[in-house]
Amino acid sequence: MRNSVRKLRSSRGLSQGQLGAVLGVSRQTINAIETERYTPSLLLALSMAKFFEVSVEEMFHANEDPEDDQ
């Protein structure tokens, strides 16, 4: 699943640790989301969307091309 978390975070001038603190998760969790090694829970995704004032759909994008998953 692709996402724009890094772009949104950077546009606010936040470090991964700062964003994690706001959301109640670790810097490592934010890093794993940004590098697409971890898909956040629905509750965390909703919290992130609310914080960045975007929809979950704007922030997270499913891979629509099956070859992208390989």
Rank of each mutant, 00 (worst) to 15 (best):
M1V: 06
V5T: 03
V5R: 00
V5K: 00
R6C: 04
K7P: 06
K7M: 10
K7Q: 13
K7S: 13
L8T: 05
R9H: 01
R9F: 06
R9G: 02
S11M: 08
S11R: 08
S11W: 10
S11L: 06
R12N: 09
R12C: 10
R12L: 14
G13F: 06
G13I: 07
S15A: 03
S15M: 10
G17Y: 07
Q18H: 09
Q18L: 09
Q18I: 10
Q18D: 13
L19E: 03
L19I: 05
L19M: 04
L19Y: 04
G20V: 07
G20A: 07
A21R: 06
A21D: 09
A21F: 02
V22M: 05
L23E: 06
G24E: 05
G24V: 08
G24R: 09
G24A: 11
V25L: 09
V25Y: 01
V25D: 04
S26T: 15
R27K: 13
R27T: 08
R27Y: 10
Q28R: 14
Q28K: 15
Q28L: 13
T29W: 03
T29N: 10
T29D: 07
T29G: 00
T29Y: 04
I30M: 08
I30Y: 00
I30E: 06
I30P: 00
N31C: 13
N31T: 14
N31W: 12
N31E: 14
A32K: 08
I33F: 02
E34F: 10
E34R: 07
E34W: 09
T35V: 12
T35L: 08
T35D: 04
E36K: 11
E36V: 10
Y38K: 12
Y38G: 05
Y38W: 10
P40R: 07
P40K: 01
P40I: 08
S41C: 00
S41K: 08
L42P: 03
L42I: 15
L42C: 11
L43W: 01
L43T: 09
L43V: 09
L44K: 05
L44I: 08
A45F: 06
A45T: 04
A45P: 00
L46G: 11
S47N: 15
M48W: 03
M48V: 01
M48F: 00
M48R: 00
M48H: 01
A49E: 05
K50M: 11
F51V: 05
F52M: 04
V54E: 03
V54R: 09
E58N: 09
E58V: 03
M59Y: 03
M59T: 05
M59S: 01
M59Q: 02
F60T: 06
H61P: 01
H61S: 11
H61C: 11
A62F: 13
A62G: 00
A62Q: 12
N63A: 14
N63M: 11
N63C: 12
N63H: 12
E64T: 15
E64I: 15
E64R: 15
D65P: 02
P66N: 11
E67C: 14
E67K: 14
D68C: 11
D69W: 12
D69S: 14
D69Y: 09
D69T: 14
Q70P: 08
